[in-house]
Amino acid sequence: MTAGQDSLSPEEPVEEPRPAPDEEMSAARPRVGTGTAPAFGLLLALLLVGLGVVGVQEGLVRSGAIGAGSWTSAALGAGDGIEAANWMVPVFVVLVVLGLLVLPVVVMRRPRKTVTLAARTGVYLRTADLARITDSLVDGADGVIDVHSSATQRQIHVRVTTTSAGTTKQVVDGDIEARLAPSLAALEHPPRVKVELRSEDLT
């Protein structure tokens, strides 16, 4: 190392410390659920495999490659000569009902269960976790014995059990609102807060 390299000459600009990075990555899309369609898809995929196995067994048996009874023949034999009977009615009704229950899955929107925090990059919180935060914030407020909240993207529903003596709705509401305010302010679109009071009458 030479002296020239070691010392900075006055003309050279002194290297400044790197500025704090200010370009955040843009936010990724909030996570969405898949709904129940994949479960049916998986079921049908396995059903397809099963059907394929039946086909292969059928071919091998008929061509004489393996000596066994063909499943298809058994099914054809069993299905021959069936007459309408009363016990079939509930079976057919169940089929229709099952079909009607399955159909809504097709058009259902993918479940969206995250709220976005106010940030320049993507920061997300699940609604169930928002409810958990609410529980923890409201728990221990004046007059509150027990709290159970649930949350969606639009609304937090706080169910509060209060002591019966001397707790008015306004006071508890105001207290809860004040406790939740800082956390709600951190959300991009704060959900509405709905407080439901239940007083525990001990007398």
Partner: peptide, 27 residues
């Protein structure tokens, strides 16, 4: 794959409804 699953579910649902309804008609 999600789209395929949805279409398959649609076919399954329609098949169940149609099967049950035709069965009742036959009965």
């Amino acid at each position: 794959i999600l789209l395929i699953d949805r279409i398959a579910t649609l076919v399954l649902g329609l098949a169940l409804v149609a099967g049950g309804a035709l069965g009742l008609w036959w009965w």
